[in-house]
Simulated assay, not measured.
Amino acid sequence: MTYPHTAPFPTRWNDNDVYGHLNNTVYYEAMDTTINVWLMTSAGLDPSAGEPIGVCVSSSCEFAASAAFPDALEVGLRAGRVGRSSVTWELGILRDGVVIAEGRFVHVFVDDATRRPVPIPAHIREAIERELTI
Rank of each mutant, 00 (worst) to 15 (best):
A122E: 14
N23F: 12
L73V: 09
V75F: 01
R95D: 06
E51T: 10
A65M: 13
R104H: 12
D32N: 15
D15Q: 05
T11Y: 07
F69R: 10
A30Y: 10
A101F: 02
D96C: 07
E74L: 06
V99R: 11
V55I: 15
I120S: 00
G103M: 00
V110L: 03
E29R: 15
V110N: 05
I53S: 00
V108A: 04
V37S: 00
T133P: 01
E51F: 01
I53A: 02
R12S: 13
E90P: 06
I93T: 14
F69Y: 15
V18E: 11
R125S: 03
N14T: 15
F9E: 05
M31G: 11
S86L: 03
P4C: 00
T33K: 13
R115H: 14
A67M: 06
N24K: 12
L39T: 06
P52L: 01
D46M: 12
L45S: 09
L22I: 13
T2P: 10
P70I: 08
S60R: 15
V55T: 10
P52K: 05
S86R: 01
I120V: 12
T34F: 03
V26Y: 06
M31R: 00
I35T: 04
G76Q: 07
L94V: 06
W38E: 03
D46H: 13
G44F: 03
A79M: 04
V108S: 04
T41I: 11
R125Q: 01
M1A: 11
N24Q: 13
S42Q: 15
M1S: 10
L132C: 03
L39C: 08
D112I: 07
A49M: 12
L77S: 02
V18K: 12
W38V: 04
R84N: 08
V110T: 09
A68K: 14
G44R: 02
F105I: 09
I35V: 15
G76K: 03
H123Y: 02
T133A: 13
G76N: 06
E126V: 02
L73P: 06
R84D: 00
Y3F: 15
L77Y: 02
N16M: 10
L94E: 05
E90A: 02
D32V: 09
P10N: 06
P8E: 14
C56D: 14
M40G: 11
A30S: 09
A72N: 14
R104C: 12
E29T: 13
M1F: 08
R130Y: 07
G83K: 04
N24A: 12
V55N: 01
D15C: 07
P52A: 00
R125F: 01
L132G: 00
V98G: 08
V108D: 00
P121M: 00
F105H: 14
